[in-house]
Design a protein around this nucleic acid. Sequence first.
DNA 1: CCTTGACATGTTATAGTATCACATCTACTC
DNA 2: GAGTAGATGTGATACTATAACATGTCAAGG
Lengths: 174, 174
Amino acid sequence: MPPLPKTAHDACPGCATPGLAFAPHDHARCAGDVMALAEAHLAAGGQRLTPVRRRTLEILLETHRAMGAYDVLERLAAEGFGRQPPVAYRALEFLEEHGLAHRIRRLNAFAACMHPAEDHAPVFLICRACHSVAEAEGGGVGAALTAAAGGFAVERMTVEALGLCPACQGAAHG
Amino acid sequence: MPPLPKTAHDACPGCATPGLAFAPHDHARCAGDVMALAEAHLAAGGQRLTPVRRRTLEILLETHRAMGAYDVLERLAAEGFGRQPPVAYRALEFLEEHGLAHRIRRLNAFAACMHPAEDHAPVFLICRACHSVAEAEGGGVGAALTAAAGGFAVERMTVEALGLCPACQGAAHG
DNA sequence: CCTTGACATGTTATAGTATCACATCTACTC
DNA sequence: GAGTAGATGTGATACTATAACATGTCAAGG
């Protein structure tokens, strides 16, 4: 795994929409926006963004890499929350159920949702070089999948692509 | 998990192509066909279908459910092969590398490939009721994914749908 | 023949991921 | 203030996967 980028800005190639994915931008701002959306979304549904849950989401939002549950747990424990696996798994599961985080199955890891409350069908783009994970809109993919499925009734889909993000394609040239 | 179907025929709703997926058919025959294809494919590539590998593929072919590595291992061990995890993982990895099996990430499990040697982009349809896993052609899905990915260079894709197969949709009515 | 090297198989040990079962706490309701 | 639902915490354990190394097999080249 390559060394972590030194600034939040460098660490954040993919907050934006598919077309703008991986473009540099102000990550603190994009994370803040997501937190605000998340809060509003939960309040509207009568759900509670408790301290562990909030902190878990904040931790996920710090990077565009996916984090393992145990990495999250380590952070939570260091900040005075419980230090047993269910603490992290429950928070992550809650966030996922409410569309605030996604599970990246290929990595056995979790990433914050960059478009909370949008009821989307996300696809994930995992860069095998810098390990960042971007979220793209998967409406078209979902349609193609439904078509390919024939009589099978699709309820949920997992779509993950492994490859190279634009920045790392460039780096590979040199 | 529902009880296992009583016959190979019942256990095999999805050997065929997407349109015919989940249609009843002679499973022993379809499994035999796949074995023959697999053997030819490996021979052509100068690879060896050793006893463990062959037996592993046969075990996967017995059912259209995905099997965990440890389930496979248990079977192998009972038949005189090694009883340590790497035995199963190595055979499964070999089969996957050569397109004879697929890893179903949502289930942390493996399924035999029903179209070996075809160089396809499969998508998987996982029935949440009967737990059978069918393989559909994902060419259209791949195209949609590439389009959604923008400048990201897709090298491999994982596409898995969770839902209800035709048979279980019918069963749910009653 | 027999050595060499590549590959396959086997082992022990351990790492990494996830859930169960149960106790406690908090906050709200009646 | 008793009852209740949900959230958090714990210890224990289950499940999934890989590392590291020893042995076995077999074909090619000397």
